[in-house]
Amino acid sequence: MSNVAVFDQNAGAGVLAESPLSHVSGRKGGSSPGVILREKAFMGYLTLRGNAADAAFCEGVEQVLGMPLPTAPMALHQNTQKGSSILWISPDEWLILLPGGTEYETELALRAELSGHFAVVNVSGGLTLLTVTGPDARHLLHKSTGYDVHPRNFPVGKGVTTTFAKATAIIRRPSETTWELVVRRSFADYCYRWLVDASREFGLDAEI
């Protein structure tokens, strides 16, 4: 019996995929919107589990992803060349973001490189990513989450799993001006409606 089932779940071209927010219509926020919202649909997502104290595990991950495994809580590492990133979720859990369609090959590569007790799970269908930019982006977050998003507590290169309105989201800060929300598919519509509502006072540009 094989140990684990690895399964290329990509349908490839010809099959119409629908992102969790494919049903919403965008809105233009006037000439100077305070908040700009975009969905970065169809990214690849892998949950990685393993032992950060195992040097071989860390090296193996770095080998495959081309960036070190974040071992500090909430650390976000990015490989801008590959368009990928990895975020600390828990002492033994990370979320890897990949260009859509590369999750299967990445999982295979990780499984080839790693040994011992670890897990890789493809969760690409269950998540989507929203980018929030604009001068009022941080105000919008203050209205939406109880997590402290002040730059002193939330510098670039950090990401947290926390409450978002009445749902849960991962909030990431990949750059000085960009915030990212990773939300679960089933909550995406709710989160989107919340964002639209909370942005009203700032003016929203959401070309989704």
Partner: peptide
């Protein structure tokens, strides 16, 4: 103690 941060009760 795992995240190394204070968080709001609503997360727990």
């Amino acid at each position: 103690p795992y995240c190394g941060e204070h968080r709001e009760e609503s997360e727990f």
